[in-house]
Measured scan of single mutants.
Amino acid sequence: RLHIEVEGTELMKKLVEEAKRRNLNVRAKVENGKWIIEID
């Protein structure tokens, strides 16, 4: 499991799109103003 903290929506969208393209499980949520992304 990969755990990433990202500031900025554009970067988050790119990460999520790339993960979906590779058929990975992606969860994204906002915590303290940062995107928290978990990829399995």
Results as ranks from 00 to 15, higher is better:
Arg1Trp: 14
Arg1Tyr: 14
Arg1Ile: 14
Arg1Pro: 10
Arg1Asn: 08
Arg1Phe: 14
Arg1Gly: 08
Leu2Arg: 09
Leu2Val: 12
Leu2Glu: 06
Leu2Asn: 05
Leu2Tyr: 12
Leu2Trp: 15
Leu2Thr: 07
His3Phe: 14
His3Tyr: 14
His3Thr: 15
His3Asp: 06
Ile4Trp: 11
Ile4Arg: 04
Ile4Phe: 13
Glu5Val: 15
Glu5Asn: 07
Glu5Thr: 12
Glu5Pro: 06
Glu5Ala: 08
Val6Phe: 08
Val6Glu: 03
Val6Trp: 07
Val6His: 04
Glu7His: 13
Glu7Thr: 12
Glu7Ile: 14
Glu7Phe: 14
Glu7Ala: 11
Glu7Val: 13
Gly8His: 12
Gly8Leu: 14
Gly8Thr: 15
Gly8Asp: 15
Gly8Arg: 10
Gly8Phe: 13
Thr9Met: 13
Thr9His: 12
Thr9Pro: 09
Thr9Asp: 14
Thr9Arg: 11
Thr9Gly: 08
Glu10Thr: 07
Glu10Asp: 11
Glu10Ile: 08
Glu10Gly: 08
Glu10Met: 10
Leu11Pro: 03
Leu11Ser: 06
Leu11His: 10
Met12Asp: 01
Met12Glu: 01
Met12Ile: 07
Met12Gly: 03
Lys13Ile: 13
Lys14Gly: 04
Lys14His: 08
Lys14Ser: 08
Leu15Glu: 01
Leu15Ile: 15
Leu15Asp: 00
Leu15Met: 09
Leu15Gly: 01
Val16Asn: 02
Val16Leu: 11
Val16Lys: 04
Val16Pro: 00
Val16Gly: 02
Val16Ala: 03
Glu17Leu: 12
Glu17Met: 12
Glu17Lys: 11
Glu18Phe: 14
Glu18Asn: 07
Glu18Trp: 15
Glu18Ile: 12
Ala19Met: 15
Ala19Tyr: 14
Ala19Cys: 14
Ala19Pro: 00
Ala19Leu: 15
Ala19Ser: 03
Lys20Leu: 14
Lys20Pro: 00
Lys20Trp: 09
Lys20Phe: 10
Lys20Arg: 14
Arg21His: 05
Arg21Val: 03
Arg22Gln: 08
Arg22Trp: 08
Arg22Thr: 02
Arg22Gly: 02
Arg22Ile: 05
Arg22Pro: 00
Arg22Met: 12
Asn23Thr: 03
Asn23Gly: 15
Asn23Tyr: 10
Leu24Thr: 00
Leu24Phe: 05
Leu24Glu: 00
Leu24Asp: 00
Leu24Arg: 02
Leu24Met: 07
Leu24Asn: 00
Leu24Gly: 00
Asn25Phe: 10
Asn25His: 13
Asn25Tyr: 10
Asn25Glu: 05
Asn25Val: 13
Asn25Gly: 06
Asn25Pro: 04
Val26Gly: 01
Val26His: 01
Val26Phe: 08
Val26Lys: 01
Arg27Gln: 06
Arg27His: 08
Arg27Ala: 05
Arg27Ser: 10
Arg27Leu: 06
Arg27Val: 10
Ala28Gln: 04
Ala28Gly: 03
Ala28Pro: 02
Lys29Pro: 00
Lys29Asp: 04
Val30Ser: 12
Val30Ile: 14
Val30Glu: 14
Val30Pro: 07
Glu31Phe: 10
Glu31Thr: 06
Glu31Asn: 06
Glu31Tyr: 09
Glu31Ser: 09
Asn32His: 06
Asn32Met: 03
Asn32Ile: 02
Asn32Ser: 05
Asn32Leu: 04
Asn32Val: 02
Asn32Trp: 03
Gly33Gln: 03
Gly33Lys: 03
Gly33Val: 00
Gly33Asn: 07
Lys34His: 10
Lys34Tyr: 08
Lys34Arg: 14
Lys34Gly: 03
Trp35Phe: 05
Trp35Lys: 00
Trp35His: 02
Trp35Glu: 00
Trp35Ala: 01
Ile36Phe: 05
Ile36Glu: 03
Ile36Asn: 01
Ile37Leu: 06
Ile37Ala: 00
Ile37Lys: 00
Glu38Met: 10
Glu38His: 09
Glu38Phe: 11
Glu38Lys: 06
Ile39Asp: 02
Ile39Asn: 01
Ile39Leu: 06
Asp40Met: 12
Asp40Pro: 03
Asp40Val: 12
Asp40Glu: 13
